[in-house]
């Protein structure tokens, strides 16, 4: 059966890449992306609709387009990019509206895929070395992004319970590194000095950006139901990650770390959101045996992910901008997609 897929956050990093990945799939008949801004990657046939970040018009879109799959990639997991209020609007209110649209009476939607993060497990001294999907976090969620993601996951769980016929897939991705993505960790690693808490050398787990898209595609295509951790095989100590990336560790005091880091953060020398600070103390690991049982395995191990990141980092250090940037031109895209003059294969 031909699939009609709606992707949230087409303008964001993951939305754009997910749309690109689905475009090559002949089973996917139509791809519709919603976003607050124009797409930042080149797209062949995916349609773009502008919507505000809380998706108040989503139920109209779902009714009008009869999409059967919603891929919710637009969840903010990086608290340095947006304000706390904005993050709440995007994550909590956005997901609520999205699930309301998907669950409306007579809804054509059969599958909802949500891209969450292993941030929901937190990072504390009492953690197991590996979190399984059903292991609950051992510490209270103190950071804003963790609290908002836990709230989002609560909505998704309730939604799955209320709509047993719906395939609900919730993916928790470990910290992402890769060629293009910019996160607090990647920008720290790109600088000559990066933060570290003195006396701690945590083990971190990474997932490569291509594997994130690959996994989203896998669960969408095969209608995989359930909650899954996704991360690269193995773990690396932070000292080794920084050594591979050729940066020096700036040892922050283990007590009053935030106070010590505040001036450096202010000067823009380091990035240290609260969730990164606890990660740099105790690290985090997730067990990925459940996702591998569904037939998916990451192409990159954690060490391979760091390697792929450092390769792109070296290139960026030599050639300032490696890839040409893309600008969305509305009239050109309209011409190629809808003008009778343009021939479209398969249409």
């Amino acid at each position: 059966m031909a699939r009609r897929v709606l992707i949230t956050g087409l303008d964001s990093f993951w939305g754009g890449r997910m749309a690109q990945a689905l475009e090559s799939d002949p089973e996917v008949e139509m791809i519709l992306g919603v976003g607050t801004h124009e797409p930042s990657v080149a797209l062949e046939r995916a349609e773009f609709v502008r919507a505000d970040e809380t998706y108040s018009i989503l139920s109209r879109i779902v009714r009008a387009t009869q999409v059967d799959t919603i891929v919710h990639t637009f969840l903010v997991v990086d608290s340095t990019r947006v304000s706390g209020r904005e993050m709440h609007e995007i994550n909590v209110i956005g997901t609520m509206n999205l699930l309301a649209a998907a669950g409306q009476p007579g809804s054509p939607v059969r599958q909802v895929v949500v891209k969450s993060s292993t941030l929901v497990y937190g990072s504390a001294s009492t953690d197991p070395t590996w979190f399984r999907e059903e292991t609950s976090r051992t510490s209270a969620a103190r950071t804003r992004v963790e609290r908002s993601l836990i709230e989002v996951e609560g909505f998704v769980r309730d939604f799955a319970q209320d709509n047993p016929s719906m395939v609900v897939s919730l993916l928790r991705f470990a910290n992402v590194l890769g060629t293009n993505i910019v996160t607090p960790i990647s920008s720290n690693l790109s600088r000559p000095w990066c933060p570290s808490v003195a006396g701690y050398d945590p083990l971190l787990q990474f997932v490569e950006e291509g594997d994130v898209v690959g996994c989203l595609e896998h669960v969408t295509r095969n209608r995989v139901r359930g909650i899954y951790n996704v991360a690269g095989e193995g773990k690396l100590p932070w000292s080794e990650v920084t050594a591979i990336c050729g940066t020096h560790r700036l040892h922050l005091s283990p007590v009053a770390t935030r106070v010590a880091a505040a001036p450096l953060v202010r000067l823009g020398l380091i990035e240290l959101p609260p969730e990164l600070e606890s990660l740099l103390r105790f690290g985090r690991g997730v067990d990925t045996s459940r996702i591998s049982e569904t037939g998916f395995s990451c192409l990159h191990s954690t060490a391979g992910t760091v390697d792929s990141f450092v390769r792109s980092l070296r290139l960026r250090r030599s050639v300032h901008k490696a890839q040409p940037s893309y600008t969305y031109e509305s009239d050109i895209e309209q011409f190629f997609r809808h003008s009778p003059a343009a021939t479209r294969p398969g249409a």
Binding site: E233, G234, S301, G304
Partner: peptide, 19 residues
């Protein structure tokens, strides 16, 4: 023997996944 030993990744230490 490690599972990902075959993949050509440069490790700088021998810290395993347990630390």
């Amino acid at each position: 023997h490690l599972k990902d030993a075959a993949t050509p990744t440069a490790r700088l230490s021998d810290v395993d996944e347990w630390g």
